[in-house]
Write a protein that binds this DNA or RNA. Structure first.
Lengths: 249, 249
DNA sequence: TCCGTTATCCCCAGAACTGGGGAGATCATC
DNA sequence: GATGATCTCCCCAGTTCTGGGGATAACGGA
């Protein structure tokens, strides 16, 4: 079993890494030390960074990597979907208790098994305004996971992702800056997301309808979108508003 | 210094907790064990106004809690802002390197110090579609933090937040039956969420614009909403569509 | 065979949104 | 004292949505 000291050593090494290669090497090493065979440190989609600035350090069976890309599973993969429901690591064997698996999901999991992946452990990595990601470690088929060290595995996953993020940020010169909305704009968008009209929002905020229209105009401009629906969803996606803001009554 | 075994014991206890009180007690205990004096496990929303389904377990100096609510700092507090830029724990002394501190931020930090808070460590907790939160542990003024155990503190913070989340979810309302949309309706809603007009959606699906209008009319009816924005967000919330459907190019 | 569901299309009137223009006030910062 | 950001309000023309009312056809189950 790996020790806390080793985790800390990895953390230091990962933080010092300035290239994906260096980091890849460090992760590979600790993956083996933790008794895993495979790992994948990835962003789940490449939304606003179509040019490949997304994080992607993968050491998985070739077969599976190909099948994965073939099926464009980045965001529909059940493991990824499950990782979006928590912020602590979870064993793949628990996925069925986290999300509802449909027929396609089961097919995906079966395919992974056939490709040589055994049980695994995934650490979610979510940061408001950034693409969701995760860091997964997997055994070969048949191998047993040591539950006792999973908390340490979680730490490794978090630190690894953070290190990858740092490298990716440094590499991505034109920072895809998440548009910042003003407080008033956010209030308006939150109410838009609740299906209010400009006039209703104006009543609620105690200002003129024209003012609300203007705030939303400005907010749309900042996100570069032309529809209030898109505005609400983008604001939701990068955390300017949350489902709690919208759906609570 | 705390041991990994103690962290795991806390994790088990936290997961078993079914009321905020039980969890509060467990967190209080381990906080002391880790050498901290205060903690705050919170959602970053204004908990005075809404109905209070947000997470909020706080043991901070009274003075500070009051000042905090007075100033409505839930989302503008520099510590909270910093926590939204990472997914690993950070010492408060590092905040200046994470976000740009303005005059007001510095005033807030100074006020916290006056209220008796020393250095602290905050673990972010972000889950897509949910309110951002964090778990912070703080020393009394003048006390020194043991850097070596911070990774374990991070684990405790993550587990504590997850446990609180589980309790909050359980307390939340009985699930109202999720309306089912037809396949065609879902396709239309997904495109609505991408900001398309009925006419554009009709082109994409190869049907008449009137048909799209009708599908959306029906979909709104099923959800009992009157605005397409609300429709998109509800569909997103209960999984009929996903961010991946919307935002991938 | 009848009924419910789904998908397709049509018309209309009023409400709501969008994009363009402009303008005054406040506040913090430089 | 200027500058920029924010918030506030106004006008207008054109587009888009929304909620009514229809209709036809295919499919599958009761």
């Amino acid at each position: 079993m790996i020790s806390l000291a080793e985790v800390q050593a990895f953390c230091t090494a990962a933080n010092a890494a300035s290239t994906p290669q260096t980091l890849m090497h460090a992760v590979q090493e600790i993956t083996a030390r933790m008794g895993f065979r495979y790992f994948a440190l990835v962003h789940h989609i490449d939304l606003l960074a179509p040019d490949g600035t997304g994080i992607r350090l993968v050491h998985y069976p070739h077969e599976w990597v190909e099948a994965f890309e073939e099926g464009r599973l980045y965001a529909s993969d059940p493991i990824h979907r499950a990782s979006q429901t928590t912020n602590v690591g979870f064993a793949w064997s628990k996925v069925a208790t986290m999300i509802t698996l449909n027929a396609r999901d089961r097919a995906v999991l079966a395919a992974a098994r056939i490709a040589g992946l055994g049980n695994g452990f995934t650490i979610p990595a979510h940061i408001p305004g950034e693409t969701n990601g995760s860091c997964s470690f997997a055994m070969g088929e048949g191998d047993d996971m040591d539950d006792a060290q999973l908390p340490l595995v979680q730490l490794v996953g978090s630190f690894a992702f953070e290190a990858a993020r740092k490298i990716a940020h440094a590499a991505a010169s034109p920072i895809p800056a998440v548009p910042q909305l003003t407080e008033r704009q956010i209030e308006c968008v939150a109410l838009v997301a609740r299906g209010k009209t400009d006039w209703e929002i104006a009543r609620i905020l105690g200002v003129g309808a024209e003012t609300v229209t203007q705030h939303l105009k400005d907010a749309r401009d900042r996100y570069g979108v032309t529809k209030r629906t898109m505005l609400a969803i983008r604001a939701l996606f990068d955390g300017a508003i949350s489902f709690a803001d919208i759906l609570r009554r």
